[in-house]
Design a protein around this nucleic acid. Structure first.
Length: 403
RNA sequence: GCCUCCGUAGCUUAGUGGUAGAGUGAUCGGCUGUUAACCGAUUGGUCGUCGGUUCAAUCCCGACCGGGGGCG
């Protein structure tokens, strides 16, 4: 057994995922360490913050420093000095990146590196890289379709994802024997936000022999309603006893809602990226510490927060550090935001155990969107559309003025 | 005192005889399986002052003011 459910409250659940580096209680959130480092933090810092797993990226590590180097170091745990669980992503998400992708074929993704050097990245290569890195959980190579594309592109992505999933399982079984590895393998479902695609892909991935299942291709520009709909639809078609991983989701309110839908596991750059850019997470929403309003604010980032940053430093200090690009600023800000996420996860687990997830979520969401500084996040696509519209309008106005 | 170079956005500066761009700063916003200490928007200038030439001067000429360098 790789996963057991300990408590249930509605669709939400608390469980235990068994891995080589020790069991992990679900729900859990993973900070992202694509290049083998949670930016600005060392392994020990992440451990102290209480995270039991992080996720790195095998494709990005294969570019630099190369799989050989990490393998030679004795595996990714030793290389980056993190003693708990490490997931590795396959590189599937990088098919969305214009900087990497040349084209997709049935064989695999044709990628290029910084120098323009081409390489074919197949499911088999993705499996081998992840086994050699020695991560606890490997992800299959999947084919992610951009949000808002036509049906054909979604169908192609689903078809390839399923085909690559089957090939991944075969390759992974052999590699596990060859390398005497206990690595787990998670499959990823696609399908975007259309119900029938989502259902179909989830169903197929669920049928296959994976140690865990993931919801892929989400949080890439769809509206919050579409996102939540896709999550609810997916969860229905995954077996209850399988651990469910929603890839890429990480804003606090989204995590709270997704846990309520029965998702067990998350990863996102959200807290770390926002931290470095000066956006601090609090119960009353986010606020931007670099704003002039905090120049002379000698209180902690968040009143009552027990993180090392809030215990020892002021908003004014962080404001100063981040404005002057002092390296310590990135670390202190990251400590706070990651602490916030881990604390949130612990509270969610606690609420589920006590059968009061619903009340907890209601209170949390109310608070989060209540603060003067807080507001619902605008969604990407809508915002980009509005920006484009504004520019077009401005141009029309200028042309008209030029008459 | 003489010679010389230079004064353009808060700062560093580009530029042209048809009233000016950039970087940076400032203000605000965005980041959700990160090659991102990043990206975007906004703000910001009687082009040192006063005259002259010209249809038109930030640009050419003169004086003055301020600054750098050199010679005495």
């Amino acid at each position: 057994m790789t996963f057991e459910i300990l408590y249930e409250d509605g669709k939400a659940r608390v469980g235990k995922l068994y891995t080589e580096h020790g069991p992990v209680i679900t729900p859990f959130f993973m900070p992202v360490a694509s290049k083998g480092s949670v930016k600005a933090m060392e392994g020990a810092d992440i451990d102290i913050l209480g995270f039991e797993s992080i996720i790195s990226n095998s494709f990005i590590l294969s570019l630099s420093p190369g799989i050989d180097v990490v393998e030679g170091a004795g595996g990714i745990h030793k290389f980056m000095h993190f003693k708990k669980n490490i997931f590795t992503d396959s590189g599937g998400f990088q098919v969305l990146s214009k900087d990497f992708l040349i084209k997709k074929t049935d064989e695999g993704a044709l990628f290029k590196d910084q120098s323009g050097k081409k390489m074919i990245y197949t499911p088999e290569i993705a499996m081998k890289n992840q086994i050699r890195l020695g991560s606890d959980v490997a992800m299959t190579l999947d084919d992610v379709a951009h949000y808002g594309l036509s049906g054909k592109e979604y169908v192609d992505a689903i078809r390839r994802t399923h085909d690559w999933a089957r090939r991944s399982i075969i390759a992974h079984k052999e590699l596990k024997k060859e390398y005497d590895s206990k690595q787990l393998l998670f499959g990823i479902a696609q399908g975007g936000t259309r119900e029938e695609y989502r259902r179909f892909s989830t169903h197929k991935i669920n049928e296959m022999d994976f140690d865990g299942v993931a919801l892929g291709g989400l949080v890439i520009g769809e509206s919050r309603g579409e996102l939540m709909g896709a999550i609810a639809e997916s969860v229905k078609h995954f077996d209850d006893h399988k651990v469910r991983y929603l890839m890429g989701l990480g804003s606090p309110p989204d995590v709270v809602r997704a846990v309520g839908e029965g998702v067990d596991c998350f990863d996102s750059i959200y807290p770390t990226s926002n931290a470095r850019h000066g956006s601090m997470l609090t119960r009353k929403g986010r606020f931007m510490i670099k704003k002039v309003a905090y120049k002379n604010d000698h209180g902690p980032i968040e009143e009552g927060c027990k993180c090392e940053t809030c215990k020892n430093y002021s908003r004014a200090y962080l404001h100063h550090l981040l404005r002057t690009h002092e390296l310590l600023g990135y670390k202190l800000a990251t400590i706070h935001n990651l602490h916030f996420m881990n604390n949130l996860i612990h509270e969610l687990r606690d609420a589920i155990k006590k059968g009061r997830y619903k009340e907890y979520a209601e209170d949390f969401l109310k608070d989060y969107f209540s603060g003067k500084e807080a507001k619902e996040f605008s969604n990407n696509v809508q915002q980009k559309y509005m920006e484009k519209l504004r520019k077009e309008q401005a141009k029309i106005f200028l042309d008209w003025k030029g008459e």
